[in-house]
Design a protein around this nucleic acid. Sequence first.
DNA 1: GTAGCTGCAAACTCTTTGCAACTCT
DNA 2: AGAGTTGCAAAGAGTTTGCAGCTAC
Lengths: 134, 134
Amino acid sequence: MVDLIDVCAEAGMKMTDQRRVILKVLSDAEDHPSVETVYERAKGIDSSISMATVYRTLNLLDELDIVVRHDFNGSFSRYEVNMEHHHHLIDLETGDVIEFQNEELEKIKEKIANELGYELVDHRLELYGRRLKK
Amino acid sequence: MVDLIDVCAEAGMKMTDQRRVILKVLSDAEDHPSVETVYERAKGIDSSISMATVYRTLNLLDELDIVVRHDFNGSFSRYEVNMEHHHHLIDLETGDVIEFQNEELEKIKEKIANELGYELVDHRLELYGRRLKK
DNA sequence: GTAGCTGCAAACTCTTTGCAACTCT
DNA sequence: AGAGTTGCAAAGAGTTTGCAGCTAC
């Protein structure tokens, strides 16, 4: 388990109380929280934290690739710590997000890009589904 | 080639001048225009058209699945007429969008969803790349 | 000491909405 | 005639920013 605080320090970020709180919230998150959610959880730890700081910090972390921004449904962004590359299956009924990886898929994508004359830099795959009755 | 006006009429949409103009803009588009772009092109045909109408019409068309909404880069939406299912490769340098299809990919996605206990309802794949020098 | 960070409130961007007038069917 | 549509301007959501004070390094 990597300590986000170390990663940020190495990236040259000044380590403030607020940032420590936000990083803890992100590390502990097992979901893909919105800015609003990160803000609420952070306030639970240090109530003086402001929305602006949450936005600024998340943007910074995104630029540094420490965090990944998603916009699964359009209107607002959601974040997760940048671990190994994976994809998401979004449960259309509950909004739950399930992560998965698939080697075969990675190869095909690389191939498709190359065939189109491109070097693959990034990609995203999202599946939207309904739970099968068992 | 399907006539969008017919499709809309069948869906029960009242056909106004404004809608005819917007549908023409969408049919003619070979790119994936933003609301702003649709608005500008529509104004080129009928300068009295309003932004609100463009928004309302695109939302309606999206609900009817006549059009597909994308948000490739987060901040604003872009639209295209809903043809056969395909995916997008976004050129990171120019912003160009290239469409592609891949049978193999479709099968794998179906399989992944099933393995996770889900029925696949929808999905999206986006590749982001840089043009290979030849 | 100073470059960078913070909270606040105002500003900004994209999108939606209430309303009164108008228009398809 | 009546339900649905329009333009306008105002409101809304989500996000960014200018500023003066504060803090990590």
